[in-house]
Design a protein around this nucleic acid. Structure first.
Length: 118
RNA sequence: CAGGUCAACCGGGCGAUCGCGUCCCUGGCAAUUGCCGGGAUGAGGAAAGUCCGCACUCCACAGGGCACGGUGCUGGCUAACAGCCAGGCGGGGUAACCCGACGGAAAAGUGCCACAGAGAAGUAGAGUGCCCGCAGCUUCGGCUGCGAGCGAGGGUGAAACGGUGCGGUAAGAGCGCACCGGCGUCGCUGGUGACAGCGGCGGCCAGGCAAACCCCACCGGGAGCAAGGCCAAGCAGACGCGAGAGACGGCCCGUCUCGUUUGAGCGUCGGGUAGGCCGCUUGACCCCGUCGGUAACGUCGGGGCUAGAUAGAUGAUCGCCGCUCCGCAUGGCGGAGUGACAGAAUGCGGCUUAUGUGUUGACCUGGUUA
RNA sequence: GCCCCCAUCGUCUAGAGGACUAGGACGUGGCCCUUUCAAGGCUAAGACUGGAGUUCGAAUCUCCAUGGGGGCA
């Protein structure tokens, strides 16, 4: 994922957690808010509760890969933060893909028609 | 063949596609960053815990003393170490081999040794017991009481003030003697040394704990890359204390800086920022050979460049081989899995802890066969 | 990343080498009291984070690990 598509400021993370709309399932928590840019920006949070540095890195990298998978289908102009939950570390990768898809659909960022059009 | 000891090594391999970080390009577009294309490169043996030691940076110089902390057999290696190598001593194991915070406890001082036990460290202690004398009783075996001596036997305890034998005695005792153990001291021999061996002499024996205080020897100034430097952006001060404050941290000395009507500094409340670049990876580096050394390690020569992220780059998918498991079944086929511990954040040397399967070499013990 | 601190019943704590079989308060269970509840009384269960070492003896001293907490731009 390119540098300009990442969320990098602590203030942006705080804004999303405080004012953004929020959706969650067993694997992930998603916070979303519109930005003033023509593209999306993504942030990932992996807390120490997930386990060791290996577990946290693994969760973050798999989530980043899933974002890369769905990115062309997501409506532009939003900031979003994904927070990993315990099952996201050890589940199979397709499960993680499905979990992210359902969250994006609930947030209204990923239309069924857009997905099928791809 | 079985069991064991020690050491070294490995931490799946090859290839393809998409994606990410860093660097390079006489490449293209743009002309500052940027985008596209091409190429190179991209986690570990512990990267971990942060337990030690250094380098490096700042504190003016990195100074002195006390305090405090650390280390603690000897010699060597090293930039240094609580590390490593070699040796000594002690302990464990049939053995290979392993383990040891291993200076000082009479000859500096203080303290502690619960419970049990007669007595717990002072030239201690007498309950049971042994022995003698006197008196009483007697079934003539002894028993009881009083007095004096004793430390052998029993008993307590983690620990009771050398062991065996002979002499000695009323009974005994290093009370005396011989040997043994241990201690001190002197001499000789070997060794750089810790220490070892041999001989003489001495007094007869001297408890344990210093990971209790302490003494001795040696070492240590403090903080840490969020150190520290540069650039950019932003803001707002008010009140109180106030002659000393800071570098400097427990104290003192010394040195320097700032300050005492022009107010250092401290405290309370309030306001702003939390961006970029450097430090940042060529180093006590890695590989091969040579020579010196028992070894750790060092000398010399040749070759190599091997991560530098900053909400933090390694992920996803697939093929072949290898490995493990399961089934069919008999060396072929099919299916599943692809591991354990674990992720660089200034670098390096160690220690410690976690870790699946295995490979190689040397050695020891037992059994069997020849 | 670097640097510090702490760990005792469910919770908060006492303890400083032996008299520890680890004390107290709140909470929990049982019984009494009350028509019932609360309060009160009696009573019971319940812990030294783990492993080594020093010592005759360790919650206490030392080392290693584990788990928490804090500070530094």
């Amino acid at each position: 994922m390119q540098r300009r598509l990442r969320l990098r400021r602590a203030a942006d993370f705080r804004r999303l957690r405080e004012t953004g709309s929020s959706h969650a399932n067993r694997y992930l928590v998603l916070s979303v808010a519109p930005n003033d840019l023509s593209h999306n920006r993504y942030g990932i949070i992996t807390t120490r509760r997930l386990g060791t540095a290996v577990a946290r890195n693994r969760a973050r990298r798999r989530i980043r890969e899933a974002i890369r998978h769905w990115h062309p289908l997501i409506a532009p102009g939003y900031d979003m933060v994904f927070i990993a939950r315990q099952p996201a570390v050890h589940c199979a990768y397709p499960e993680l893909l499905n979990a992210m898809q359902s969250l994006l659909q609930r947030a209204g960022l990923l239309g069924e028609d857009r997905s099928q059009a791809q």
